Amino acid sequence: MGSHSATGAGHFGTDPLWCEEYGYGLGTLTGVLVLRYRSAAVLEFGQSRQDFLHQLYWSPDGMLSTRYGADTQFVGAREAFWAHRAVSHEVRAADRQTVYRICLRQVPEMLGGLRAGAVSIDDEAARLVQAIARPGYDEQAALVARERIMAGLGASTRDFVGHHATGTGFAMTVARALSHDPGDPVRLEEWAERLHVSVKTLQRDFVREFGMPYSQWRTKLRLRASRVLLEGRPVAEVARRVGYATPSAFITAFAREYGCTPGRYALHEADSA
């Protein structure tokens, strides 16, 4: 069996986290350590990292706000955030969100040369991350799963579309771009022009892939991203960051989706921390 431990006070920075650790083949080149965090948290490393493990962050139930150097972007559930060993970075999750941090000694083949950034994770790899972060998982089976997880990662938009698209792939191409920057103001008509397809074709692809039209999907994306930012940031700043022209428009949309205002939500999360 692999090793397993849990703590209610493991943390990076100053925010307490509930953390469970699952290690398989530790101390070997082909080993893997998976840490499963639960709760609102900021996972943060300083400007100088001394560790010798590569890091992969993934959350199945929300967005992650990530920072590497001057580059800040969001990462959705169909992507993970990769950081090469010794590369300083920051990862932020929303309230009571589950975050998996996979620590590796080897670089996955498709991520060679990538220092840090969003990467695609296919459905089977995502399933296996959750599977091996449970008590009692067989060590040899976990090491086989590790190989499949590494094979299920990809750095390019083509990898992302190939991993997830069931339709033409146009909607997935747009989805990846907007997931990294939900505040991007580009309209559906402009996306269609860039992709050299009709607006009708792109809209149909969104409904096929996500079960809703583009405008509804984008609204939900922006509101999910806002939850990651609200703790410690003014509502007006968050509204602007996720693409709303005015705070009032953001407040109305947020309240419609979550049943409370952004200010009340942020206050509740601060009191719960």
Rank of each mutant, 00 (worst) to 15 (best):
7 T>Q: 14
9 A>G: 09
11 H>E: 04
12 F>G: 02
12 F>T: 12
13 G>A: 08
21 E>T: 11
24 Y>F: 15
24 Y>R: 09
27 G>R: 10
29 L>Y: 09
31 G>D: 00
34 V>H: 04
35 L>G: 00
38 R>M: 05
41 A>Q: 01
43 L>Q: 01
43 L>W: 00
45 F>V: 03
45 F>H: 08
47 Q>F: 06
48 S>Y: 03
50 Q>V: 06
52 F>T: 00
52 F>H: 05
58 W>M: 00
59 S>G: 05
59 S>E: 01
62 G>K: 01
62 G>Y: 02
62 G>V: 04
63 M>H: 11
65 S>W: 12
66 T>N: 11
70 A>N: 08
72 T>H: 05
73 Q>S: 11
74 F>L: 04
77 A>I: 12
78 R>I: 00
82 W>D: 02
83 A>I: 02
85 R>M: 13
88 S>I: 00
88 S>P: 15
90 E>K: 03
93 A>N: 05
97 Q>E: 07
97 Q>G: 01
100 Y>H: 14
100 Y>T: 01
100 Y>M: 07
101 R>L: 14
101 R>K: 15
102 I>L: 15
108 P>V: 08
110 M>F: 08
114 L>C: 12
117 G>H: 05
118 A>G: 12
119 V>W: 01
120 S>W: 00
122 D>N: 15
124 E>Q: 14
124 E>V: 14
128 L>R: 13
129 V>A: 12
135 P>L: 09
137 Y>D: 06
137 Y>I: 15
137 Y>P: 05
138 D>P: 14
147 E>D: 15
152 G>Y: 10
152 G>I: 07
154 G>V: 03
154 G>N: 06
157 T>N: 07
163 H>V: 02
168 T>H: 13
170 F>W: 12
177 A>T: 13
180 H>K: 13
181 D>M: 10
181 D>Q: 13
183 G>Y: 02
183 G>D: 04
183 G>H: 01
184 D>P: 07
187 R>L: 10
190 E>K: 10
190 E>F: 04
195 L>M: 13
198 S>N: 11
199 V>K: 09
199 V>R: 14
200 K>E: 15
201 T>D: 12
203 Q>V: 00
204 R>Y: 04
209 E>C: 11
210 F>S: 08
211 G>T: 02
211 G>E: 04
212 M>Q: 15
214 Y>A: 14
216 Q>D: 10
218 R>G: 00
220 K>N: 10
223 L>N: 08
224 R>A: 13
225 A>C: 15
227 R>I: 03
229 L>Y: 07
233 R>I: 04
235 V>F: 06
237 E>G: 11
237 E>N: 05
242 V>Q: 01
244 Y>S: 03
248 S>H: 08
249 A>S: 13
250 F>H: 12
250 F>T: 01
253 A>T: 03
254 F>M: 09
256 R>Y: 02
256 R>Q: 13
257 E>M: 06
257 E>T: 05
259 G>K: 07
259 G>A: 10
259 G>Q: 08
260 C>E: 15
261 T>W: 06
262 P>G: 10
263 G>H: 10
266 A>V: 05
266 A>F: 04
270 A>V: 11
272 S>N: 13
273 A>Y: 14
